[in-house]
């Protein structure tokens, strides 16, 4: 099949091009060309977003920071606004894959790839991120954790385009962290990863907790039970151990070459406890 390349210069133009059969959005190319190289994906038309203006900015206001979908991981890792508002997210972007992936891989492409072992959806869901999507039937906003229906199955129509991710500014006395467990190589997909965002009260007890796990299910998983265990308690060793057990019992991974299901369950609990511990605001650390 002969592949066609389209390079629209407006968002509406891109939506129109995506109406043709087997058309796919081309952002940075790293995941998409990888799937093409493996013979897993054979698009008829690629619609590049590179010439569509306004998709690669980072902007902030009093309530949130907006990350353009065409921002590369390297760009976000170094962005001065994101580094100030959400340093754990900037660190997460700095640790994705390898330097070449970060050069070209984009935020929107990463989320639309819908791989539950990727880093951004885990951290950004923990930070209460929402995704802005445009399409021929109108615009919509969905939570980051809802962008995937299953592995490599985004909850998007083929002619819908992710335009940005909005992260609300962190509350007072809150902290965030992202930890991935990489028993193999540093650029491997995580065996399990945890994004955590905790808000504390003045006494140092957890007021609200949000924990999200990656690579232990068909999509990223918001850990309801895990978050509940923390609420109302300081992060003492007993509470962290209860968190470990709750997360272990809540996730449902499958066995693969990165570990057995039991092993991943155990490690999910341990990584969750470490991630929660790393959320302590600087003033509350011993």
């Amino acid at each position: 099949m002969t592949l066609l390349w389209r390079r629209p210069t407006t968002l509406d133009g891109a939506i129109e091009e995506l109406a043709s059969d087997d058309a796919a959005i081309y952002a940075g190319g790293v995941s998409l060309v990888l799937l093409m190289n493996l013979g897993l994906f054979e698009p008829a038309t690629l619609v590049s977003l590179a010439a569509v203006p306004g998709l690669a900015a980072v902007t902030g206001d009093d309530e949130a920071v907006d990350l353009g979908a065409m921002c590369t991981h390297a760009r976000l890792a170094a962005d001065p606004i994101l580094r100030r508002t959400h340093p754990a997210a900037a660190d997460m972007f700095a640790g994705i894959g390898n330097v070449r992936v970060r050069s070209w891989g984009t935020l929107g492409g990463n989320l639309a790839h819908a791989d539950p072992a990727q880093d951004p959806p885990v951290m950004l869901a923990a930070l209460h991120g929402t995704v802005s999507v445009v399409g021929p039937r109108g615009d919509r906003v969905i939570p980051v954790e809802a962008i995937a229906e299953g592995p490599l199955s985004p909850a998007l129509d083929p002619d819908e385009i992710v335009t940005s991710v909005r992260l609300p500014l962190a509350e007072e006395r809150s902290g965030s962290s992202y930890l991935k467990y990489l028993p193999g190589t540093k650029d491997d997909y995580a065996t399990v990863s945890i994004g955590a965002h905790l808000q504390f009260d003045r006494a140092g007890a957890v007021r609200q907790a949000r924990l999200v796990a990656g690579a232990v299910g068909p999509t990223v998983v918001v850990l309801g039970a895990g978050s509940e265990v923390l609420t109302g308690h300081p992060l003492d060793p007993d509470v962290l151990d209860a968190l470990r057990v709750a997360v272990r019992d809540e996730v449902n991974p499958s066995s693969d070459r990165r570990g057995s299901a039991d092993y991943k369950r155990e490690m999910a609990g341990i990584v969750a406890a470490r991630a929660a511990s790393a959320c302590r605001p600087a003033s509350a650390r011993p």
Partner: peptide
């Protein structure tokens, strides 16, 4: 290097 950026030329389309 593409405009100075380390790049996997196997995962990059020429037209890109």
């Amino acid at each position: 290097l593409v405009d100075g950026l380390p790049t996997s030329s196997c995962l990059t389309l020429a037209v890109q």
